[in-house]
């Protein structure tokens, strides 16, 4: 999946898109249909854009209210700019005890 504006150069997306790893926990695993995956974003995409893209592709994310995303094992604010190769972890709440 590619998000954001991009321009093919010599028939390929060069440098305009970057690939990040997505790791899903809890109910997010059910929503995206797997534990691990990859997504592509345009350069300088923020966490906000990642959340928008996820919600667009998987509308159930909307029901999670404000879900948090960790980048490379640290929680990040919505304004955080992601980089090529980042690992994004989606950790929805769980209530079982």
């Amino acid at each position: 999946m590619r998000v954001g504006l991009g321009r093919p150069i010599f028939g390929q997306y060069i440098r305009l898109f970057m690939k990040v790893k997505i790791l899903a926990f809890g109910i997010a695993k059910d929503i995206v249909g797997g534990k691990a995956g990859a997504m592509e974003f345009s350069e300088n995409a923020t966490i906000t854009q990642v959340k928008e893209a996820l919600t667009e592709k998987y509308p159930d994310f909307d029901k999670l209210a404000k879900f948090s995303i960790a980048v490379n094992e640290s929680y990040q604010e919505d304004t955080y700019v992601i980089k090529e190769g980042d690992e994004l972890v989606i950790i929805p709440p769980v209530s079982g005890g």
Binding site: G26, D60, K63, A65, K66, S68, I91, P92, G96, G97
Partner: peptide, 19 residues
């Protein structure tokens, strides 16, 4: 971490989702 709860019924409990 979780300012707002998920929509009711979205996240199953142990009785529904199993553990």
């Amino acid at each position: 971490i979780y300012p707002d709860p998920p929509a009711p019924g979205l996240v199953p409990d142990c009785a529904t989702g199993g553990v």
